[in-house]
Write a protein that binds this DNA or RNA. Structure first.
Length: 569
RNA sequence: CGAGGUGUAGCGCAGCUUGGUAGCGCGUCUGGUUCGGGAUCAGAAAGUCGCAGGUUCAAAUCCUGUCACCUCGACCA
């Protein structure tokens, strides 16, 4: 490929809207063309990068017995109605009507399509397990696209769906897929990737992991324990932080008071101002036989479990539920003594089911001296770990918060889709059962942007060889010099014939211009032919990351370049 | 959806307060001199000033409405 004919402009000025480097470099380097909010066209260099990433993904998916298929982008609404997601998913699902007024959607993920595809096929246990995947355009009507290719609305994604006859089999396959993902990121040259436990969100299911590129510009926060290696997305956070009262920022706050509280007092305390329905749960600690009272509003079963696990306590038989207008008498045993109170205020909750209990002083407390108790209390935030927080696994105060970009994720879905869409098989024992599913995604464009973000300098991206748009960038400095032109042309031919992917710059532009463009294209190996070098009978070879710079004699150039490429690999 | 901001040539911006011939830099095109880190000189092309309505002799500029985009937050398979 001759650079002169490469479609797309490269330029010096950083566009005003680009907040992160990868975005700016991809615009400046002629990789992407902005079309609309969260919508981009790809020029040839990025398309080539994407193709190489896709090929790596494909090979690794095939290695774990994946079968590449293709689902439709446009799906009838009825398909998503089967699983209930047509109504449960919000506005990120783009809905529209065809000419007859029938409702359709643009695919944002393809669990339903995958189940629909294999529902008839998978009627016997003998067909399992199997995995199907596709690499295809998705559309998600994100509320706020940002940061170039990091968060877009239309994007290419590899999504895979596996089907199993048991949870054990799913878990074994899930582990294989986890390893395949590690290989994929390693092969693409991405270094700083970790997998973290995550929140399953709208996908349903229980176990899931996100693969995060650790970078300060990431939009997710991750808690990482430096002593035991525990890692989790902050959204999924089973973590606890000890705070001073003035630092309590979080939602789910447990207040230990040094003074005994009776349930009656606490209930009075709540009764004064809490108007919403509220569930008070008494927990009994196994170890010390002390009580903890939790006040929960709303449907917070998941968090109750989380708290129970952390405290190592069980729900006391004196479980109390009260509707608005809590009445101490109604609530029951009033002499139980508690040494901790968890205030859980759903009125401030967000979708992560965490909420703010920091406003305790706003309540009117009619019992003991709550104000004093609060002043003297220990505060623990659940769910939102802070730097230096307590690790829920090893209990060391060694939690560290990092930022990350999610470049892949894997979920154990269970039977959510197979059951709702009535996909069943007959098992060995003659019983009709629902298969359990896993699903596994990687965003191709986001991965490319993440690699650019991790590997660039002020002049441009530094693409790893495995995904670089070309392997060699051949510069003919002073292409108007006949000798230079003749030699460079010949070398270009030789390299191509040898199967080397080469971008050839024989434009009559200044060397500075040429080198700047080469930096923006980020090709790993640069070969420079110039009058100066010709005089010495050499070509100059240097790596894009500036770590290597060598000269090769003219007659050995082809072999020398191939040898260096092998070393880079 | 909440808060803030921006729409003027392909890109980056000035002009708006105080209404009066559409400006600058980069890029693009032509020609010259240059040539190892975005050279330089001369010349040229290119803009419905986001859109609609209003005020006015006259609107990029003032008023009203509207749309789009960006940032922060909310949300996020």
């Amino acid at each position: 490929m001759k650079l002169e004919k490469l479609v797309g402009d490269r330029f010096k000025e950083k566009p005003a809207d680009c907040i992160i480097d990868s975005h700016a470099l991809m615009i400046r380097g002629g990789y992407i063309k902005y079309v609309g909010s969260g919508i981009f066209s790809l020029y040839m260099p990025l398309k080539r990068i994407a193709r190489k990433i896709e090929q790596i993904i494909r090979e690794e998916m095939d290695k774990i017995d994946g079968q590449e298929v293709l689902f439709p982008v446009v799906m009838p609404a009825g398909l998503l109605e089967e699983s209930g997601r047509y109504t449960s998913i919000g506005k990120e699902l783009l809905r529209f009507n065809d000419r007859n007024g029938n409702p359709y959607v643009l695919g944002m993920t393809h669990e339903e399509a995958s189940v629909q595809m294999v529902r008839e096929y998978g009627q016997s246990y003998a067909k399992y397990p199997f995995m199907i995947y596709q690499i295809q355009t998705k559309f998600r009507d994100e509320a706020r696209p940002r940061a170039g290719l990091i968060r877009v609305r239309e994007f290419t994604m590899k999504d895979a769906y596996s089907f199993h006859t048991s949870q054990e089999d799913l878990e074994a396959y899930y582990a294989r897929c986890h390893q395949a993902y590690e290989r994929i990121f390693q092969r693409t040259g991405l270094k700083n990737v970790v997998s973290v436990a995550s929140d399953s969100g709208m996908m349903g299911g229980n176990v899931s992991h996100e693969f995060m590129l650790l970078t300060p510009i990431g939009e997710d926060s991750i808690a990482i324990c430096e002593s035991c290696g525990y890692r989790a997305n902050l959204e999924a956070a089973e973590s606890i932080t000890e705070n001073r009262r003035d630092e309590v920022s979080h939602p789910l706050t447990m207040v230990y008071t040094p003074h005994m509280q009776t349930i009656e007092n606490v209930c009075n305390f709540l009764h004064a101002d809490v108007k919403k329905s509220c569930k008070a749960v008494v927990y009994q600690r196994n170890s010390d036989n002390k009580y903890i009272i939790l006040f929960l509003r709303g449907d917070l079963e998941a968090n109750e479990t989380k708290i129970t696990n952390y405290l190592g306590c069980e729900i006391h038989p004196a479980l109390i539920t009260a509707e608005s207008g809590i009445n101490a008498g109604y609530i029951g045993p009033v002499n139980l003594q508690a040494d901790a109170i968890v205030l859980y205020d759903m009125s401030l909750a967000n979708a992560n089911n965490v909420c703010c209990g920091a406003n305790v002083e706003e309540y009117h407390y009619t019992g003991l001296d709550m104000q004093r108790d609060i002043q003297n209390a220990e505060y623990h935030d659940f769910a939102k770990a802070k730097d230096g927080g307590i690790c829920p696994h090893c209990s060391a105060a060694s939690l560290h918060i990092s930022r990350g970009i999610e470049v892949g994720n894997i979920f154990q879905l269970g039977t959510k889709y197979t059951a709702s869409m009535n996909m069943s098989y007959i098992d060995q024992d003659g019983q009709i059962k629902y298969p359990v599913m896993g699903c596994y995604g990687i965003g191709v464009g986001r991965l490319a942007a993440a690699i650019c973000e991790e590997s660039h300098d002020e002049y441009g991206p530094i693409w790893p060889l495995a995904i670089a748009p070309w392997q060699v960038h051949l510069c003919a400095v002073r292409a108007d010099d006949a000798q230079v032109k003749e030699y460079a042309d010949a070398l270009y031919e030789q390299l191509q014939n040898a199967g080397v992917e080469v971008i050839y710059d024989d434009r009559s532009v200044s060397a500075g211009n040429m080198f700047s463009d080469a930096d923006l294209l980020g090709v790993p190996l640069r070969v420079i032919v110039s009058p100066r070098n010709m005089k010495q009978n050499i070509v100059e070879v240097q790596s894009r990351d500036k770590s290597m710079k060598e000269t090769i004699r003219l007659e050995n150039a082809l072999q020398g370049i191939q040898d260096i490429l092998k070393q880079l690999r």
